[in-house]
């Protein structure tokens, strides 16, 4: 039986009307923007399932756009996020698609940059404002972003896992989960920690040999 906090029952504080179609959508887009990084000129949202069918009535579109502009699920500016995106010259598009066997509330966000390749993320809003990220640029992943999370890409070689583990342990971090996948000799690591990741650890990991990409995300708490 899951142990709840009363704030799981009386909460989240959120912009309506739906915790899954609005609050979860905002959170998903906000986390995606953190992972993809700023500087994009366009975001294409590919909506699947219930997201595709009901996004207008639930304000899912506004919540998603609010999220990529950095708004949290309880930010009242979500209501006017489409206008805000226009002011910032960020191009937005929505398309209804079939993403296959995924959760009914799933969206693929494609971030477009002038100076680098597209970055895409697929995630689902699984209820009560909770989310799960399932794919990053073609890499299958599975993390909920409710813990501080390190996202790492590197040229596959022996010892990286132990080096990362040792940096965290030296700096007094406890690893909650770690998952490593590999494709064409490029490894992707997703590591969840019990406490907020500090700059010192990030810097040390960044300086390891063969690191291609590093990003840490701290969870959105109300």
């Amino acid at each position: 039986m899951k142990d709840y906090s009363v704030f799981d029952i009386l909460g989240p504080i959120m912009i309506g009307p739906s915790s899954s179609h609005t609050a979860g959508a905002a959170r998903l887009a906000r986390i995606s923007k953190e992972i993809a990084g700023d500087g994009f000129y366009k975001v294409a949202f590919m909506l699947h399932g219930s997201f595709a069918k009901t996004y207008k009535g639930h304000g899912t579109d506004k919540a998603l756009v609010g999220g990529i502009l950095g708004m949290d699920p309880d930010d009242e500016n979500i209501k006017t996020s489409l206008e805000k995106a226009e002011e910032k010259n960020i191009d937005i598009s929505f398309e209804e698609v079939d993403l296959g066997y995924v959760h009914p509330n799933t969206v693929k966000l494609i971030f477009k940059y002038r100076d680098k390749e597209d970055f895409y993320i697929i995630g689902s809003s699984i209820g009560g404002g909770n989310i799960v990220i399932v794919n990053i640029n073609g890499n299958d992943v599975n993390f909920t972003a409710d813990k501080p999370t390190l996202f790492l890409k590197y040229k596959d070689r022996k010892g990286v896992i132990s080096e990362v583990g040792s940096i965290f342990s030296t700096n007094d971090f406890n690893i909650a989960s770690m998952k490593v996948t590999r494709e064409k000799r490029i490894a992707t690591m997703i590591c969840e920690l019990d406490s907020t990741i500090d700059d010192k650890s990030i810097e040390s990991i960044k300086n390891l040999k063969d690191i291609l990409y590093i990003k840490s995300i701290n969870p959105i708490v109300r």
């Binding site: 029952i9 989240p12 504080i13 912009i15 309506g16 506004k62 209501k79 009560g128």
Partner: peptide, 18 residues
């Protein structure tokens, strides 16, 4: 009504019953 207008609410225990 505030919820349906994309205003701020506390889900209690859900947005629908807020």
């Amino acid at each position: 009504e505030v919820n349906a207008s994309m205003g701020k609410i506390v889900a209690a225990p859900t947005a629908g019953a807020s």
